[in-house]
Simulated assay, not measured.
Amino acid sequence: MTFTIAVFWPPPPDETTTERYQEIADAGIDLVITGNYLSDRTILKHALTRADQTGLGMLVASDPRIDVVMKDLDLPAEQTRELIGKVIDDYSGHPSFRGISLMDEPYPERYERLAIGVAAVRDRGKLAYVNLFPSHATGEYDEYVGGFVDTVKPELVSFDRYPFLADGAYDEGYFGDLAVIRAHAERAGVPAWLYIQTLAYEGHRTPNAAEIAWQVNTALAYGYTGIQYFTYWTPDPSRGESFQPALVHDGVRTERYEVVKQLNNGWLRPVGDELDRLTWRSVRHTDTAVIGEYGDRHLFVCNARFDAPSEVTVDGPVSAFDPASGSYEKSAATFTLEPGAARLLMIH
């Protein structure tokens, strides 16, 4: 599976146009995860057509038939597979159709049900997607994630934990969850994906450009190969949780749309593709940096801070990856990283 940049909560039905989907693609996004009332076959097929036209992939996360068969009914396995197959058949004529989201934030009592669903989607050659809770909603997190991996046998392990809190603090549990998810994904031999906070909502503040980059870069240091932005379009007030403007608000791009567009196109896509050809080995923390080790000769070095520059020293000589050219250029072994920033280094 290649490096993926995704968004959740796309434009609503009345804004599901080719122009709006081109706006998503222009921001360096390659996968749209549905939601925002794209919740019947007619509008989902309409959205898939817009994705077809703009080169985007689409993960269907809002077909109500999937919710019913995964959450509400405990049908026999064969009948479950048959119903999921019918859903896949409805969308398989679209080149953009990548797969099905079976459930968001499941509790362990649904794992056996999800195992049937994941196998059914995978057997049809599509991505079976499930997103997990963070640890503050589950209790013992290693047991929660491990049980999911062992029972469901997923194609990837995805989760969300949004670290920037309304009181100005940072969620200290962020790195612990990042590590647990990555460890179980590594054990299962599947990718790890993470959601990135783009907006303020109940108990959380609006992240600035450095804080968005810091989330992305810490995930890369931990070997994550799927970056998912939460959210793209601002959820409407009726959904509760006091959502504030996201990347696009009431049809107008916010400054964070431009931040994400520049980050994706100028850094994340080229460096993600470069990391995709390397093998992630491990991660370590120093006072100034979070350092991911890739292969035998590469270090992904992220500033440990999102609120101040840090001076970092590594064993040299080294070259730094230039995202504009895709080549490596000679670099000093001691350098300063701006808040939230990172460098990919090759050791000589």
Rank of each mutant, 00 (worst) to 15 (best):
T2V: 08
R187K: 15
F300T: 03
Q262T: 15
D123R: 14
A320K: 07
E82P: 00
V259D: 13
R81I: 00
R256M: 10
D26W: 14
T42V: 01
A179L: 14
R297W: 11
G55K: 08
F243E: 01
I24P: 01
H249F: 15
Y111E: 05
Y224A: 08
W233L: 00
D287Y: 12
L275I: 03
A27F: 10
V216H: 04
D74N: 10
Q53Y: 01
S331Y: 09
I29C: 08
M103R: 04
T234Y: 10
P13I: 00
V32R: 04
V252Y: 13
L73S: 02
I88N: 08
A183L: 13
G93K: 05
E258A: 15
P10K: 06
S282R: 15
V118H: 09
A128H: 09
R113L: 09
I227N: 09
A308K: 13
F321W: 07
A246Q: 11
P323G: 01
L278V: 05
T151I: 15
L132Q: 09
K86A: 09
P64S: 05
D150A: 15
S62H: 08
E112Q: 14
Y229V: 06
G85N: 08
G55S: 05
N131Q: 05
T80E: 04
S319Q: 09
Y141G: 05
T225N: 12
H46Q: 13
L263H: 10
Y195V: 09
S331P: 09
A192K: 12
F3T: 03
G251I: 03
L345A: 00
E311G: 01
H136W: 14
P163F: 07
Y144V: 13
L220D: 05
S96E: 01
M58E: 03
W193M: 10
R343F: 05
S310R: 14
F97E: 02
Y162H: 08
S238C: 03
E19Q: 10
H249R: 12
I66M: 06
D90W: 15
A119P: 04
R182T: 08
P270N: 00
K86N: 14
R98D: 00
I100A: 02
N208F: 07
N217V: 03
G99K: 02
T234V: 10
V259E: 11
S39H: 04
P163W: 06
V32H: 01
G85S: 05
A308I: 05
T206F: 02
Y129D: 07
I29A: 07
I227R: 09
F306P: 00
G295P: 00
G223R: 12
A183Y: 11
Y162F: 13
G147L: 15
A183W: 11
K330F: 11
G173W: 10
L194M: 15
A289R: 06
P237I: 06
D52P: 02
